[in-house]
Design a binder for these strands. Structure first.
Length: 311
DNA sequence: TACCAGGTAAAAA
DNA sequence: TTTTTACATGGT
């Protein structure tokens, strides 16, 4: 077993804990976990070696991150490089928040949370494939249930890495899910349709239709059009992926129930708005629409009431 | 019991 | 082209 520890210095500002709360561990989720201040996940390098990443805040006050990387055999340079690249992508080191804050400061519904959560970043998935499959599991069911069936899928088809006596799972490879049977997914309480969608996305990945570099250079509309050619990938799923895997913060998943509720709450003082209303609001946040929702979700999670518009 | 969950595809209007 | 409906299941 090989292990190496690095100290990383994310660009300021960066709120580690609040950003990672999204992955606060649930019993069923084995791929991304955040517990006791440590974010954990497994990535795979080009040689197929699994690397466990464990990231936590280094010391109080200072904003450095301690990253421990562990592999089964010798720690290779390739494994280290992949691990470092992955964690910087996941933690959105490349996302510069300054222009967003400049915009947010003059936006009544956004200003208080942007200020309170200064340094909050949208934590990402490492791959297009993982983001799409994860989104599909979350279609039309509550997120607890989505996490449960996803956990079963990961436990069955994800590669395993044992570290300090604890098992960690990588997200299943497309090769594996592409040849899985619908009936096996059914036994894990996937609907038949969800099972077919996941298998179709896995095949698309194998056929090179989810090429990250190709998707990156497309406009949002072009990328959504390309992605929705895959059965089971609608606009919502495509937008989720563009935001959560590729970090395209200008997308706005206006069809998302949670987004509709959080925009309603903090921008309209209501329980729920329709997609059109939500998208109209989001136009004011361009090109940081989904980043804005990240802040509103954080406020919601923290139980912060919407500002009263009467004073 | 009915209805809702961070939707989508296919049928019907 | 726009509007319903089936899909599956756990929680309230």
């Amino acid at each position: 077993m090989g292990s190496v520890t690095k100290i990383l210095h994310p660009p300021e500002p960066f709120l580690f804990h609040e950003s990672l709360l999204r992955f606060r561990v649930s019993r069923e989720e084995y791929v991304n976990s955040y517990a006791d201040g440590v974010y954990r996940r497994v990535v795979e390098d080009a040689n197929g070696d699994l690397v466990l990443l464990e990231a936590e805040k280094e010391g109080e006050g200072r904003n450095s991150i301690r990253l421990r990387m562990t592999t089964q055999g010798r720690m290779t340079k390739s494994a280290q490089d992949v691990g470092l690249y992955a964690i910087k992508h996941i933690l959105a080191f490349d996302l510069d928040l300054r222009a967003f804050y400049k915009m947010a400061k003059d936006d009544a519904s956004l200003a208080p949370t942007a200020k309170k959560f200064r340094g909050l970043k949208p934590i990402r998935y490492p791959s297009v494939f993982e983001a799409l499959v994860t989104a599909i599991t979350a279609q039309q069911v509550n997120l607890t249930f989505a996490g449960a069936i996803r956990g079963r899928m990961v436990k069955r088809w994800g590669r395993k890495l044992r570290v300090d006596g604890k098992m960690h799972y990588a997200f299943p490879r497309p090769e594996r899910l592409a040849r899985a049977r619908v009936s096996t997914f059914r036994s894990m309480q996937f609907s038949e349709r969800k099972a077919e969608y996941v298998i179709d996305v896995a095949r698309a990945a194998l056929e090179g239709r989810l090429d990250e570099n190709e998707l990156r250079i497309l406009t949002i509309d072009e990328a959504v059009a390309r992605l929705t050619e895959i059965r089971g990938v609608g606009r919502w799923t495509a937008e989720q992926m563009l935001f959560r895997a590729l970090g395209r913060v200008e997308v706005f998943p206006g069809g998302d129930l949670g987004v509709q509720k959080v925009v309603a709450r903090y921008c309209f003082g209501e329980e729920r708005v329709d997609e059109k209303t939500a998208r109209m609001q989001a136009d004011r946040w361009h090109p940081w629409a989904s980043l804005a929702t990240t802040y509103l979700f954080a406020a919601w999670r923290a139980g912060i009431p919407p500002a009263s518009d009467t004073d």
